[in-house]
């Protein structure tokens, strides 16, 4: 169901905006934004593009903050396939929410006169979750810039946070994850034990017949990762995933020269269980990718704001390349 959320002054005492902006035209997409600003941005996007964008309630975080996603959909009587994109599952990876906002901005500013985007919008709906781990994101702004996990308490309140990208029901906590809450990869108390994970998983389950592409945006490392992380076995469409991913990496490189590697997480990065990417593929979403954005280790999670624009520009090229292939496979015949 659809909800409208109007942020109230003082609602988040610890999360006031650093800068004042009144209209979308003044919004800086080359800056990092607090959660309050992102809430306001989502609301304004929905108000500005009433014919294309609706804001929907997804669930509540552990600390009782509402999670919203944006649905970008061009009115049409044709049946359409859908794309899911989430950002900010790991709190400290600030470039990810910046990219989700950039992506929405680019789509909405260009779909009317850019034939490529127009074609995609004619046949595909987009679900965009700009910040998945809202509690953690706010904590990374207020207290610990390098916080990664959610903020749920464990061990009688002596230990906080689950790694939401180890909490999905995909060979949960079998490899590359920890059952110790002190660890960065704490997988939670059970598969889907965290409210944020449950909210995302419930929605994707309900929409899985229509969703053909799942994209989750992370940093850093310059990777386009495909399933799996929990096994060295390959998904049935592995060759296709590699081909589409490599084409995306080529498009990305053509923009600013950044070299991304493409492969399964277990092959080119490390093994990990319980990731959303692996879970999405296991429930039948054919194209499932993790982007590890631009930095090569120079800045790590603390990517300077001067890097936001080139990062988003090149990532946009890669995402559009994947969407072109999704369109060709699922929409062209219609």
């Amino acid at each position: 169901y659809e909800m409208r959320f109007v942020p109230q002054d003082g609602q988040e005492d610890v999360d006031k905006p650093l800068s004042s902006w009144r209209t979308l035209e003044n919004y800086s997409y080359d800056k990092y934004h607090s959660m309050t600003e992102i809430y306001q941005w989502m609301y304004q996007i929905g108000e500005r593009y009433t014919d294309m964008v609706t804001q929907h309630f997804l669930g509540m975080t552990y600390e009782s903050r509402p999670m919203y996603y944006l649905k970008i959909s061009q009115p049409s009587s044709n049946p359409k396939k859908s794309i899911w994109m989430d950002c900010g599952i790991h709190a400290r990876e600030w470039i990810a929410p910046a990219f989700c906002q950039w992506f929405v901005k680019e789509i909405l500013q260009n779909y009317q006169h850019d034939s490529r985007m127009s074609r995609l919008l004619n046949s595909l709906d987009f679900y965009v979750l700009p910040v998945l781990n809202i509690d953690g994101y706010i904590y990374s702004w207020t207290t610990d810039r390098l916080w990664r996990k959610s903020r749920s308490p464990h061990d009688n309140g002596t230990c906080f946070g689950s790694d939401l990208n180890r909490n999905f029901n995909a060979s949960w906590c079998s490899i590359g994850a920890s059952k110790n809450c002190q660890d960065l990869t704490f997988c939670g108390t059970g598969p889907m034990s965290e409210p944020e994970t449950k909210a995302v998983a419930s929605f994707l389950e309900s929409q899985k017949e229509n969703i053909v592409c799942f994209l989750t945006i992370h940093s850093y490392g310059q990777y386009i990762l495909l399933p799996y992380g929990y096994t060295s076995n390959k998904p049935s469409n592995y060759e296709e995933l590699i081909q589409v991913g490599q084409k995306a990496a080529n498009a990305l490189k053509a923009k600013h020269g950044t070299n991304y590697r493409v492969g399964s997480s277990a092959d080119i990065l490390y093994s990990s269980s319980g990731s959303s990417r692996d879970w999405a593929r296991d429930i039948g979403i054919p194209f499932s990718y993790t982007f590890e954005l631009r930095d090569n280790g120079t800045y790590g999670f603390v990517l300077p704001e001067t890097q936001i624009q080139p990062t988003c520009e090149e990532t946009m090229e890669a995402v559009l390349s994947i969407l072109d292939d999704v369109y060709t496979k699922y929409c062209l015949s219609n």
Binding site: V14, D15, L18, T185, E292
Partner: peptide, 22 residues
């Protein structure tokens, strides 16, 4: 400011070799 970023962990992070947990 309530939103002031905590700088100490940033400095500590820079001492950790790549790759970290992504």
């Amino acid at each position: 400011s309530a939103e002031k970023v905590a700088f100490l962990p940033v400095l500590l992070f820079l001492l950790v070799p790549f790759p970290a947990l992504l």
